[in-house]
Design a protein around this nucleic acid. Sequence first.
DNA 1: ACCGCGCTTCGGCCCGCACCGAAGCGTCCC
DNA 2: GGGACGCTTCGGTGCGGGCCGAAGCGCGGT
Lengths: 227, 227
Amino acid sequence: MHDTDLAAVGALIGDPSRARMLDSLMGGRALAAGELARVARVGPSTASEHLARLLAGGLVEVVAQGRHRYYRIAGPAVGEALEALSHVAPPRPVTTLRESGHARALGYARTCYDHLAGRCGVALHDALLQHGWLTDAYDVTPAGAAALAGWGVDVEAARGLRRSFARPCLDWTERRPHLAGALGAGLGAALVDRGWFEPRSPDSRALRLTDRGRDELVGLGCDLTRP
Amino acid sequence: MHDTDLAAVGALIGDPSRARMLDSLMGGRALAAGELARVARVGPSTASEHLARLLAGGLVEVVAQGRHRYYRIAGPAVGEALEALSHVAPPRPVTTLRESGHARALGYARTCYDHLAGRCGVALHDALLQHGWLTDAYDVTPAGAAALAGWGVDVEAARGLRRSFARPCLDWTERRPHLAGALGAGLGAALVDRGWFEPRSPDSRALRLTDRGRDELVGLGCDLTRP
DNA sequence: ACCGCGCTTCGGCCCGCACCGAAGCGTCCC
DNA sequence: GGGACGCTTCGGTGCGGGCCGAAGCGCGGT
């Protein structure tokens, strides 16, 4: 039996350089150490030390490919913890036009570890419920499974994974749920594969909704208007 | 529009003294500054400074009563964030027999901000579902509402609150859901009022299951055996 | 009114951690 | 094979934050 060391994990997240790294990794992609040094705005040696701490603390995992070392978030629980923390984190007022655009983009569509979040994520979640493809017990109906298969989402495969199948994940920008779990992850990947969303940059969580994506989501009844 | 400052909230939690305070406050009661100084094992002046930071950061709120200042967790979102962080926090191995007992007690029954958690919390959640008092969409059936009313839980009042009615909260010791939301909070309070659970100490999250509570829960079909 | 108590604020001290540059190791490419 | 590149480790530096004791303020009780 053990107790947990909240202070240790808080301190890991509590450094600005490490927080910037985790923030980028929440985009769901694995990033190389050099890239993480760049987003954190520190030198390579400093980044190495920070990454060693995140690794030892279990928040990230690493895969070596030749001389490149790719780091990624260690699993859904870490993603969930960071998203939950975002709800209680103080706002950081934006000071430049560039930051303002980035914050707006995050609020519209972004990756929350492995699934779609933001305005678009919440609208999609609502539409799935509205169409009866998803039940309010977060199960998929036969009609829903058929429709999602048309999008390239294998619902049965998602069901067989050793993680939560589908569940609401409270969106920090919308304050309403978007879809998480194995189903949310499958959907997020499929919608990028189909070209409905594309990454805004290689090291950011923000996604861009393409014209095709907008047409499809609006056709589905998603309310994408900005509040 | 704004972005969040993950580092700032991480740093708040990342100090051992402040983490100990938050840990105690997750017991759901408001604690006086002097009590928090004691649990954090620092002097009054240091405790004041830490509390000022937690207050400024929005993690706690304060109520003054005469010369006493009572601090408590600022709301359910903070409780949820701390619980989610507990899932990814490194284990802190216990080094004394006293700590070992405390850790075991936490795993058996504890307050997770305002609802019952641990083995007992999960067993109760499962029994509510098993009896059909709670649906898998986390709504209460008429039979459930009647039964819970018999326990002193006003289900309709819980439904009218400006917070999530009922939802699963993943338990960090059991790795399965216990019941959270307004319903979980009402239930937690009622079971303490009825003497099924009592606090182990004034500044700890750990609860003791009374003989009466055990009889009632076992009679309900709860599996309280330790793994 | 006076004293004790709870709590906060302030100034000073010290330790830990983030940072850097340099050096070293391994991989990749020509 | 040699050089460039990506990354890690190490030693040294400096700064920030936690800690304490002292002082001050307000409340409660006699």
